[in-house]
Computed example of a mutant assay.
Amino acid sequence: MAVSIRLSRGGSKKRPYYRIVVADSRASRDGKFIEKIGTYNPLLAKDDEKRIVLDGDRAKHWLSVGAQPTDRVARFLDAAGVRERAARNNPNKAKPGEKATERAEERAEKQKAAEEAAAAAAAAPAAEESAAESAAEEAQSDA
């Protein structure tokens, strides 16, 4: 039998309250469980001592007999000092998706085209002014 340490949801709508339970992994989330080893109330402040209540001895026992904690429960166990949790690193998490990357490239191309057009427009009057100045200088030198 595969045993997991996980959260079982209770409370009313939009007012969650969780029990930290040891259950058969095939049982439903809020269904039959083997033992309740703690509670988690996400509505309390993060520094409140009653936010997470965990029986560390029972958690150690269940871990020693092969129970697998879920990711969230593993965080709780790490904070309680029961079990070390390896830090996770996902460098691709912050990267935008394909569509967002395409849109960013299109914006960059439009921006570049607009800058080139503005530079060309600024260079064209300057070239006309310099041509007019050189024509004026030639007219003065002829006179």
Rank of each mutant, 00 (worst) to 15 (best):
A45H: 14
K46W: 10
K46T: 08
D47A: 13
D47E: 14
D48T: 15
K50C: 00
V53K: 13
G56N: 13
D57Q: 11
D57C: 01
A59F: 01
A59E: 00
K60T: 06
L63P: 02
S64L: 09
S64D: 13
S64G: 15
V65N: 07
A67I: 01
Q68D: 04
P69E: 06
D71N: 10
V73Y: 01
R75N: 14
F76C: 11
D78Q: 13
A79P: 08
G81H: 05
V82P: 00
E84A: 09
R88S: 10
N90W: 03
N90P: 06
N90M: 05
N92Q: 15
K93G: 09
P96S: 00
P96E: 00
P96A: 02
E98Q: 15
E98K: 15
K99V: 07
A100Q: 13
E102W: 13
R103L: 06
R103T: 02
R103M: 01
A104W: 02
E106I: 07
R107D: 07
R107Y: 09
A108H: 03
E109L: 14
E109W: 05
K110M: 01
Q111D: 05
K112S: 07
A113D: 04
E115T: 12
A117E: 15
A119C: 09
A123V: 05
A123H: 10
A123I: 06
P125E: 13
P125F: 04
E128F: 00
E129T: 03
E129Y: 01
A131V: 04
A132G: 04
S134D: 07
